[in-house]
């Protein structure tokens, strides 16, 4: 690798992102090139300078204050906390299940009524008639009795 190629890889070198033959080539070059050694040293100084500068320490009460502030903002904006969100999501899911059950039940009930009415009006075929009578557990006993009496 040429000097310039090596120089372009020095940034990756100090980050430990090189491996294999490229790493060996860079290391070999560094043992002979003072310019590249200087660049590596400058990169390391930049790193040290940035780390040194990052000296912000927040107060011990920051997390509690932040949480209080979040709570306040949520109260003002009407957003939900996780607990509220989960509770509301559960209620919504249960409501959907209940609605589906009610819908299915009323659909079956309607079907049953229509069949009996058709039978009573004499519109149902013999097979439909036996179906209604044999499936008596799905219609009320009164319906079956009324159907039998009126047919006679």
């Amino acid at each position: 690798m040429k000097h310039q190629d090596i120089q372009n890889r020095l940034s990756e070198y100090i980050d430990g992102e090189l491996a294999g033959p490229v790493l060996s080539a860079v290391e070999a070059h560094l043992s002979t090139c003072s310019e590249c050694v200087g660049i590596v040293s400058q990169f390391r100084n930049i790193r040290a300078g940035i780390k040194e500068r990052a000296d912000v320490e927040l107060s011990g009460s920051f997390s509690a204050n932040a949480l209080r502030s979040i709570r306040l903002q949520i109260d003002e904006s009407g957003n939900w906390t996780p607990a509220e969100f989960i509770a509301r999501r559960t209620v919504l899911a249960l409501s959907i299940v209940v609605l589906l059950l009610v819908g299915l039940t009323s659909f079956n009930f309607q079907e049953e009524e229509i069949s009996v009415e058709r039978y009573l009006r004499g519109e149902a075929s013999d097979s439909a008639e036996s179906q209604i009578l044999f499936n008596g557990d799905e219609i009320s006993k009164d319906d079956v009795l009324m159907a039998a009496v009126s047919k006679q």
Partner: peptide, 8 residues
Amino acid sequence: KDIVASAL
């Protein structure tokens, strides 16, 4: 120590 931060 401000110089690096300033360059940043």
